[in-house]
Design a binder for these strands. Structure first.
Lengths: 226, 226
DNA sequence: CAGTATCCATTTCGATACTG
DNA sequence: CAGTATCGAAATGGATACTG
């Protein structure tokens, strides 16, 4: 943390928050991650050393509490940290409105599946085991096939065929699926344009868009041109 | 700007905003500054080279527009930039609630006077020339005395005696005046505890707290203990 | 699981001075 | 007024490997 030499509350806040990665770690904590390796999944490009360092800074700043619970280390937001929700929300709303262009490097199937899993609408899904298979036609073959498995209250993602019957297969580009997640594109449009193709039984195909909820900022209205 | 390799809108926003000083420059633009040296007054500890660099980044990101107007360079927020108001507000609200401790280095009489001037309630002030003199008893003598002069719609600050009759003299510590600005302390309490002493004619003394409006985040409710 | 340790290329930025 | 030029110390953080 470097100091700005200003008493302004915005400056004092940024002293804590402006370091690279910091607010993304807070975002992960707000989203419910609490163990070190769980946090890592949300910020996979961050080295463990740096994550560790940032967590220590956040503890020192009073944003995060580190606890030993059940022989596991657990990180949780303090009241102070939970109140960063407003900051993260306004950043995300601004970002989704004004930063529409994603580079190839921004696309990441693992992160996308990880968040789709987190936001699954379990109540809308069948009670029986459900397996959604994703085929991304624009990425290297090792990263092109993913499975999202739901059994009861448990959901897992997998980058190899888990061997269960597939309920629905979603064939699309990673970019299109990401745009749906961001709310840049509606399921109906994407399906109509055949940018996404579903296969599986009819009822499941119709229901699938309701299972896969878009990201938290998808509902933010977009700037109207002109 | 360094990239996070994430499609998340929070990450995309932080790619633009997480660099040191960036959001403080945006704050200044939101507060109405538009010329280079005017911006510098709001971020005096920033070198001109760095301010220039950040402004160019913001232009590239579409947040700021640079124009030549009347043979002067002018910076202004685009619509995209104006919508950062929500981000700056949530940061300031969080900062004023949770970062209450200010180091000596955070106190700055020039910045404080600069914002008091900006927030003066001209309508509440006498029509005749009004001069408020500040005496800070906790700073080195070169920075201890300041004058805030108002004539008509024009207000200026001065760190040397401008020679006009003083309407009210405010004697206090820089820290106390800063706490009032932040909303950590009310005028009434500060005056009652004689942490601030006013001199001048009675009517002006009573009116002065109404002239000097506190900072934009002073009204944010503070966490209740326990 | 939850981190440390080490290394070093790169970046950053503060200070200071200068310019059309 | 609105920046640019230059320099060097310090920090940053990515890569990689390792540990109790």
């Amino acid at each position: 943390m470097t100091v700005y030499g200003q008493f302004c509350p915005v400056a004092k806040a940024m002293e804590v928050l402006d370091e690279r990665w910091t607010l993304l770690v807070v975002r992960e904590l707000l989203a419910g991650s609490s163990h070190f390796n769980e946090l890592r999944r949300g910020v996979p490009k961050m080295s463990p050393a740096l994550l560790s360092k940032r967590l220590r800074s956040l503890v020192r700043a009073g944003v995060v509490r580190r606890r030993d619970a059940d022989n596991r280390v657990q990180y949780e937001l303090t009241q102070c940290g939970r109140e960063l929700a407003g900051v993260v929300e306004s950043l995300g709303a601004w970002g989704v409105r004004w930063i529409g262009e994603l580079g190839e490097g921004d696309l990441d199937p693992h992160l996308l599946l990880w968040d789709l899993r987190r936001r699954l609408d379990l109540d809308a899904m069948p009670r029986s085991r459900t397996v959604i298979s994703f085929v991304f036609d624009d990425v290297a073959s090792q990263a092109a096939r993913w499975w999202l498995m739901v059994a009861g209250d448990n959901a897992d993602i997998c980058d190899y065929d888990p061997g269960f019957d597939v309920t629905v297969t979603v064939t699309t580009s990673l970019r299109t699926m990401t745009r749906i997640w961001r709310g840049d594109l509606e399921w109906q449009q994407a399906l109509g344009a055949r940018a996404v193709v579903l296969s599986g039984d009819r009822a499941a195909r119709r229901a699938l868009p309701g299972w896969l909820r878009p990201g938290a900022f998808a509902g933010v209205p977009r700037p109207v041109a002109g």
